Simulated scan of single mutants.
Amino acid sequence: MSHTPGYDRGMLDKIRMREEILDDLDEEIELELDDARLGSGRACDPLDFRQTYFRDLLRLQGELVKVQDWVKETGHRLVVICEGRDAAGKGGVIKRITQRLNPRICRVAALPAPNDRERTQWYFQRYVSHLPAAGEIVLFDRSWYNRAGVERVMNFCTDAEYEEFFRSVPEFERMLVRSGIQIVKYWFSISDDEQELRFRARMEDPLKQWKLSPMDLESRRRWEAYTLAKEIMLERSNIPEAPWWIVPAVNKKKARLNCISHLLSQIPYQDVERPEVTLPERVFSPDYIRQPVPDDMIVPELY
Protein backbone atom coordinates (compact mmCIF):
# COMPACT_ATOMS: atom_id res chain seq x y z
CA MET A 1 0.00 0.00 0.00
CA SER A 2 1.45 3.36 -0.99
CA HIS A 3 1.85 5.98 1.69
CA THR A 4 -0.77 8.72 1.77
CA PRO A 5 0.24 12.08 3.29
CA GLY A 6 -1.39 12.64 6.68
CA TYR A 7 -2.12 8.97 7.32
CA ASP A 8 0.04 6.45 9.14
CA ARG A 9 0.07 2.75 8.27
CA GLY A 10 -2.28 1.82 11.10
CA MET A 11 -4.89 4.36 10.02
CA LEU A 12 -4.68 3.22 6.41
CA ASP A 13 -5.18 -0.38 7.51
CA LYS A 14 -8.30 0.63 9.47
CA ILE A 15 -9.66 2.47 6.43
CA ARG A 16 -9.10 -0.59 4.25
CA MET A 17 -10.72 -2.89 6.80
CA ARG A 18 -13.74 -0.60 6.90
CA GLU A 19 -13.90 -0.62 3.10
CA GLU A 20 -13.90 -4.43 3.11
CA ILE A 21 -16.76 -4.54 5.63
CA LEU A 22 -18.76 -1.97 3.67
CA ASP A 23 -18.16 -3.93 0.48
CA ASP A 24 -19.73 -7.00 2.08
CA LEU A 25 -22.71 -4.95 3.22
CA ASP A 26 -23.08 -3.34 -0.21
CA GLU A 27 -23.87 -6.71 -1.75
CA GLU A 28 -26.79 -7.08 0.59
CA ILE A 29 -27.93 -3.50 0.04
CA GLU A 30 -27.79 -3.92 -3.74
CA LEU A 31 -30.11 -6.90 -3.51
CA GLU A 32 -32.57 -5.00 -1.37
CA LEU A 33 -32.50 -1.93 -3.60
CA ASP A 34 -33.26 -4.24 -6.52
CA ASP A 35 -36.25 -5.69 -4.66
CA ALA A 36 -37.50 -2.19 -3.88
CA ARG A 37 -37.10 -1.06 -7.49
CA LEU A 38 -39.04 -4.02 -8.84
CA GLY A 39 -41.68 -3.61 -6.17
CA SER A 40 -42.77 -0.16 -7.34
CA GLY A 41 -46.48 0.30 -6.81
CA ARG A 42 -46.45 -1.47 -3.45
CA ALA A 43 -45.95 0.20 -0.13
CA CYS A 44 -42.33 -0.17 0.95
CA ASP A 45 -41.45 -1.65 4.27
CA PRO A 46 -41.10 0.92 7.03
CA LEU A 47 -37.58 2.16 7.52
CA ASP A 48 -37.43 0.71 11.00
CA PHE A 49 -38.11 -2.79 9.66
CA ARG A 50 -35.41 -2.38 7.00
CA GLN A 51 -32.99 -1.59 9.79
CA THR A 52 -34.23 -4.61 11.73
CA TYR A 53 -33.91 -6.75 8.63
CA PHE A 54 -30.28 -5.88 7.94
CA ARG A 55 -29.31 -6.17 11.60
CA ASP A 56 -31.04 -9.52 12.15
CA LEU A 57 -29.93 -10.95 8.82
CA LEU A 58 -26.30 -10.36 9.71
CA ARG A 59 -26.88 -11.84 13.18
CA LEU A 60 -28.56 -14.94 11.74
CA GLN A 61 -25.84 -15.35 9.14
CA GLY A 62 -23.34 -15.25 11.99
CA GLU A 63 -25.21 -18.18 13.54
CA LEU A 64 -25.11 -20.01 10.21
CA VAL A 65 -21.32 -19.70 10.28
CA LYS A 66 -21.40 -21.40 13.69
CA VAL A 67 -23.59 -24.15 12.18
CA GLN A 68 -21.03 -24.56 9.41
CA ASP A 69 -18.20 -24.95 11.92
CA TRP A 70 -20.24 -27.47 13.94
CA VAL A 71 -21.21 -29.47 10.84
CA LYS A 72 -17.58 -29.67 9.77
CA GLU A 73 -16.40 -30.59 13.28
CA THR A 74 -19.02 -33.27 13.94
CA GLY A 75 -19.47 -34.72 10.45
CA HIS A 76 -23.18 -33.88 10.50
CA ARG A 77 -25.04 -34.29 7.20
CA LEU A 78 -27.86 -31.85 6.45
CA VAL A 79 -30.31 -31.63 3.55
CA VAL A 80 -32.57 -28.58 3.23
CA ILE A 81 -35.34 -28.88 0.65
CA CYS A 82 -36.84 -25.64 -0.69
CA GLU A 83 -40.07 -25.99 -2.63
CA GLY A 84 -42.76 -23.54 -3.67
CA ARG A 85 -44.42 -21.94 -6.64
CA ASP A 86 -42.41 -20.06 -9.24
CA ALA A 87 -41.31 -16.65 -7.87
CA ALA A 88 -42.05 -17.72 -4.28
CA GLY A 89 -38.62 -16.54 -3.11
CA LYS A 90 -36.83 -19.87 -2.72
CA GLY A 91 -33.70 -18.62 -4.46
CA GLY A 92 -33.56 -15.47 -2.35
CA VAL A 93 -33.64 -17.45 0.90
CA ILE A 94 -31.04 -19.92 -0.37
CA LYS A 95 -28.79 -17.04 -1.40
CA ARG A 96 -28.96 -15.52 2.09
CA ILE A 97 -28.25 -18.88 3.72
CA THR A 98 -25.20 -19.60 1.59
CA GLN A 99 -23.95 -16.03 1.19
CA ARG A 100 -21.32 -16.12 3.94
CA LEU A 101 -20.64 -19.85 4.07
CA ASN A 102 -17.85 -21.94 2.62
CA PRO A 103 -19.06 -23.46 -0.70
CA ARG A 104 -16.95 -26.53 0.01
CA ILE A 105 -19.17 -27.21 3.03
CA CYS A 106 -22.50 -25.71 1.99
CA ARG A 107 -23.62 -26.11 -1.60
CA VAL A 108 -26.77 -25.77 -3.68
CA ALA A 109 -28.26 -28.51 -5.87
CA ALA A 110 -30.52 -27.05 -8.58
CA LEU A 111 -31.00 -29.84 -11.09
CA PRO A 112 -32.25 -29.18 -14.63
CA ALA A 113 -34.93 -31.27 -16.31
CA PRO A 114 -33.85 -34.93 -16.60
CA ASN A 115 -32.19 -36.00 -19.84
CA ASP A 116 -33.23 -39.03 -21.87
CA ARG A 117 -30.96 -41.37 -19.92
CA GLU A 118 -32.07 -40.07 -16.51
CA ARG A 119 -35.71 -40.58 -17.45
CA THR A 120 -35.03 -44.32 -17.62
CA GLN A 121 -33.31 -44.48 -14.21
CA TRP A 122 -34.82 -45.08 -10.81
CA TYR A 123 -36.56 -41.78 -10.14
CA PHE A 124 -34.47 -40.81 -7.09
CA GLN A 125 -31.17 -41.87 -8.66
CA ARG A 126 -30.05 -38.50 -10.01
CA TYR A 127 -30.69 -36.85 -6.64
CA VAL A 128 -28.71 -39.39 -4.63
CA SER A 129 -25.37 -38.25 -6.06
CA HIS A 130 -26.00 -34.76 -4.66
CA LEU A 131 -26.64 -35.90 -1.08
CA PRO A 132 -24.13 -34.66 1.52
CA ALA A 133 -21.11 -36.54 2.79
CA ALA A 134 -19.96 -36.09 6.40
CA GLY A 135 -19.51 -32.43 7.27
CA GLU A 136 -21.62 -31.10 4.38
CA ILE A 137 -24.84 -29.12 3.91
CA VAL A 138 -26.85 -29.38 0.69
CA LEU A 139 -29.75 -27.09 -0.17
CA PHE A 140 -32.04 -28.40 -2.89
CA ASP A 141 -33.55 -25.59 -4.96
CA ARG A 142 -36.43 -27.85 -5.95
CA SER A 143 -35.97 -31.53 -5.34
CA TRP A 144 -37.43 -34.98 -5.92
CA TYR A 145 -40.77 -33.34 -5.17
CA ASN A 146 -40.82 -32.15 -8.78
CA ARG A 147 -42.77 -35.34 -9.46
CA ALA A 148 -45.49 -34.27 -7.03
CA GLY A 149 -45.63 -30.74 -8.49
CA VAL A 150 -44.60 -29.70 -11.98
CA GLU A 151 -44.48 -33.25 -13.39
CA ARG A 152 -47.98 -33.98 -12.14
CA VAL A 153 -49.49 -30.68 -13.26
CA MET A 154 -47.80 -30.65 -16.68
CA ASN A 155 -48.48 -34.37 -17.29
CA PHE A 156 -44.77 -35.24 -17.47
CA CYS A 157 -45.38 -38.46 -15.54
CA THR A 158 -48.04 -41.16 -15.67
CA ASP A 159 -50.61 -41.80 -12.96
CA ALA A 160 -48.74 -44.99 -12.09
CA GLU A 161 -45.41 -43.13 -11.72
CA TYR A 162 -47.13 -40.49 -9.59
CA GLU A 163 -48.61 -43.08 -7.24
CA GLU A 164 -45.31 -44.96 -7.04
CA PHE A 165 -43.59 -41.74 -6.01
CA PHE A 166 -45.86 -41.35 -3.00
CA ARG A 167 -45.36 -44.99 -2.05
CA SER A 168 -41.58 -44.57 -2.29
CA VAL A 169 -40.83 -41.08 -0.98
CA PRO A 170 -41.64 -41.72 2.71
CA GLU A 171 -39.45 -44.84 2.73
CA PHE A 172 -36.71 -43.08 0.77
CA GLU A 173 -36.59 -40.23 3.29
CA ARG A 174 -36.79 -42.56 6.30
CA MET A 175 -33.86 -44.50 4.84
CA LEU A 176 -31.84 -41.26 4.53
CA VAL A 177 -32.68 -40.27 8.09
CA ARG A 178 -31.74 -43.72 9.41
CA SER A 179 -28.39 -43.38 7.65
CA GLY A 180 -27.73 -40.15 9.55
CA ILE A 181 -28.88 -37.46 7.10
CA GLN A 182 -31.06 -34.76 8.61
CA ILE A 183 -33.81 -33.54 6.25
CA VAL A 184 -35.57 -30.20 6.67
CA LYS A 185 -38.34 -29.47 4.13
CA TYR A 186 -39.77 -26.00 3.43
CA TRP A 187 -42.71 -24.93 1.27
CA PHE A 188 -42.67 -21.20 0.47
CA SER A 189 -46.23 -19.95 0.28
CA ILE A 190 -47.33 -16.86 -1.67
CA SER A 191 -50.72 -15.60 -2.78
CA ASP A 192 -52.18 -15.57 -6.27
CA ASP A 193 -51.87 -11.77 -6.46
CA GLU A 194 -48.29 -11.78 -5.20
CA GLN A 195 -47.13 -14.28 -7.82
CA GLU A 196 -48.75 -12.23 -10.57
CA LEU A 197 -47.05 -9.08 -9.31
CA ARG A 198 -43.63 -10.77 -9.20
CA PHE A 199 -44.10 -12.21 -12.68
CA ARG A 200 -45.02 -8.79 -14.06
CA ALA A 201 -42.02 -7.23 -12.35
CA ARG A 202 -39.75 -9.80 -13.98
CA MET A 203 -41.30 -9.16 -17.37
CA GLU A 204 -40.45 -5.47 -17.08
CA ASP A 205 -36.91 -5.92 -15.76
CA PRO A 206 -34.27 -6.84 -18.39
CA LEU A 207 -31.97 -8.10 -15.60
CA LYS A 208 -34.50 -10.72 -14.52
CA GLN A 209 -36.40 -11.61 -17.66
CA TRP A 210 -34.26 -14.76 -17.92
CA LYS A 211 -36.03 -16.04 -14.82
CA LEU A 212 -39.31 -16.36 -16.73
CA SER A 213 -39.53 -19.55 -18.78
CA PRO A 214 -42.49 -20.77 -20.84
CA MET A 215 -43.05 -23.31 -18.05
CA ASP A 216 -43.32 -20.50 -15.50
CA LEU A 217 -45.93 -18.71 -17.61
CA GLU A 218 -47.91 -21.91 -18.04
CA SER A 219 -47.80 -22.48 -14.28
CA ARG A 220 -49.52 -19.13 -13.88
CA ARG A 221 -52.46 -20.36 -15.96
CA ARG A 222 -52.64 -23.58 -13.93
CA TRP A 223 -52.61 -21.97 -10.48
CA GLU A 224 -55.49 -24.11 -9.18
CA ALA A 225 -53.94 -27.36 -10.45
CA TYR A 226 -50.70 -26.46 -8.64
CA THR A 227 -52.68 -25.72 -5.49
CA LEU A 228 -54.30 -29.15 -5.56
CA ALA A 229 -50.97 -30.84 -6.27
CA LYS A 230 -49.37 -28.99 -3.35
CA GLU A 231 -52.14 -29.98 -0.95
CA ILE A 232 -51.84 -33.64 -1.92
CA MET A 233 -48.04 -33.51 -1.64
CA LEU A 234 -48.12 -32.02 1.86
CA GLU A 235 -50.70 -34.55 3.01
CA ARG A 236 -49.01 -37.64 1.59
CA SER A 237 -45.36 -36.87 2.33
CA ASN A 238 -45.50 -35.18 5.74
CA ILE A 239 -43.77 -37.77 7.92
CA PRO A 240 -42.44 -37.39 11.49
CA GLU A 241 -38.89 -38.15 10.37
CA ALA A 242 -39.00 -35.34 7.77
CA PRO A 243 -41.99 -33.04 8.26
CA TRP A 244 -42.98 -30.17 6.00
CA TRP A 245 -42.71 -26.58 7.24
CA ILE A 246 -44.70 -23.77 5.60
CA VAL A 247 -42.98 -20.39 5.18
CA PRO A 248 -45.37 -17.44 4.60
CA ALA A 249 -43.44 -15.69 1.83
CA VAL A 250 -45.51 -12.76 0.58
CA ASN A 251 -43.06 -10.46 2.36
CA LYS A 252 -39.61 -11.50 1.09
CA LYS A 253 -37.59 -9.99 3.91
CA LYS A 254 -39.70 -11.52 6.66
CA ALA A 255 -39.68 -14.88 4.90
CA ARG A 256 -35.88 -14.88 4.79
CA LEU A 257 -35.51 -14.04 8.47
CA ASN A 258 -38.23 -16.45 9.57
CA CYS A 259 -36.90 -19.34 7.50
CA ILE A 260 -33.28 -18.93 8.58
CA SER A 261 -34.30 -18.52 12.22
CA HIS A 262 -36.42 -21.68 12.04
CA LEU A 263 -33.68 -23.63 10.28
CA LEU A 264 -31.26 -22.73 13.08
CA SER A 265 -33.78 -24.04 15.62
CA GLN A 266 -33.85 -27.41 13.85
CA ILE A 267 -30.10 -28.02 14.03
CA PRO A 268 -28.56 -29.15 17.36
CA TYR A 269 -25.40 -27.11 16.80
CA GLN A 270 -23.05 -25.80 19.46
CA ASP A 271 -20.17 -23.36 19.44
CA VAL A 272 -16.96 -24.92 18.19
CA GLU A 273 -13.74 -23.63 19.65
CA ARG A 274 -11.48 -22.33 16.92
CA PRO A 275 -7.70 -22.34 17.22
CA GLU A 276 -6.20 -18.90 17.55
CA VAL A 277 -4.95 -17.63 14.20
CA THR A 278 -1.57 -15.91 14.15
CA LEU A 279 -0.35 -14.12 11.04
CA PRO A 280 3.21 -15.26 10.29
CA GLU A 281 5.96 -12.75 9.73
CA ARG A 282 6.63 -11.86 6.11
CA VAL A 283 9.88 -13.36 4.82
CA PHE A 284 12.13 -10.97 2.90
CA SER A 285 14.85 -12.34 0.62
CA PRO A 286 17.68 -9.90 -0.16
CA ASP A 287 18.21 -11.42 -3.63
CA TYR A 288 14.53 -11.27 -4.65
CA ILE A 289 13.83 -8.85 -7.52
CA ARG A 290 10.27 -8.32 -8.64
CA GLN A 291 9.89 -8.40 -12.40
CA PRO A 292 7.87 -5.60 -14.05
CA VAL A 293 4.48 -6.48 -15.56
CA PRO A 294 3.99 -5.42 -19.21
CA ASP A 295 1.55 -2.55 -19.56
CA ASP A 296 -0.57 -4.45 -22.09
CA MET A 297 -1.39 -7.06 -19.41
CA ILE A 298 -2.90 -4.55 -17.01
CA VAL A 299 -6.69 -4.23 -16.84
CA PRO A 300 -7.62 -0.60 -17.66
CA GLU A 301 -8.58 1.39 -14.58
CA LEU A 302 -11.84 2.87 -15.81
CA TYR A 303 -13.05 3.51 -12.27
Rank of each mutant, 00 (worst) to 15 (best):
S2H: 07
G6E: 00
Y7R: 07
D8S: 01
R9A: 14
M11E: 06
D13K: 09
D13C: 11
E20S: 06
L25R: 13
D26Y: 13
E27Q: 14
E28N: 08
I29Q: 15
E30C: 09
E32I: 10
E32G: 14
L33M: 10
G41A: 13
R42I: 15
A43M: 11
C44D: 15
R50D: 11
T52I: 09
D56E: 10
D56P: 07
L58S: 11
Q61I: 04
G62P: 14
D69F: 02
V71Q: 01
V71G: 00
H76I: 04
H76N: 12
R77M: 04
I81L: 06
I81T: 07
E83S: 04
K90S: 01
K95I: 01
T98E: 05
T98Y: 02
Q99T: 00
R100F: 10
N102Q: 02
P103D: 00
R104Q: 03
I105L: 00
R107C: 04
V108W: 11
V108K: 10
A109G: 04
A113E: 06
N115E: 04
N115V: 05
N115Q: 05
E118C: 00
Q121D: 13
W122S: 01
W122P: 04
F124L: 02
Y127C: 06
V128M: 03
A133K: 12
G135L: 01
V138E: 06
L139S: 02
L139P: 02
Y145H: 01
N146L: 06
N146A: 07
R147N: 02
A148G: 03
A148W: 00
G149D: 02
G149L: 02
E151S: 13
M154R: 04
N155R: 02
D159E: 08
E161D: 04
E163I: 03
R167E: 11
S168H: 15
E171R: 13
E171A: 10
E173G: 07
G180V: 02
I181A: 12
Q182A: 13
Q182G: 08
K185E: 07
Y186W: 14
I190M: 14
S191E: 08
E196W: 15
E196M: 13
L197P: 11
R198V: 05
R200I: 12
R202P: 06
D205N: 13
P206Q: 03
W210I: 08
K211N: 03
K211I: 05
S213A: 04
P214T: 05
A225M: 05
A225G: 05
K230V: 12
E231W: 00
E235L: 08
E235V: 06
R236Y: 08
N238L: 08
E241D: 12
E241H: 07
A242W: 09
W244P: 14
I246M: 11
V247E: 13
K252M: 01
K253N: 11
N258K: 14
C259Q: 15
H262L: 15
L263R: 06
S265H: 15
Q270C: 08
E273W: 01
V277K: 05
T278R: 14
P280C: 07
E281R: 08
R282E: 12
P286M: 07
Y288M: 09
Q291F: 08
P292L: 03
P292T: 03
V293M: 11
P294L: 04
D296V: 14
D296N: 09
M297D: 08
I298Q: 15
E301W: 10
Y303P: 14
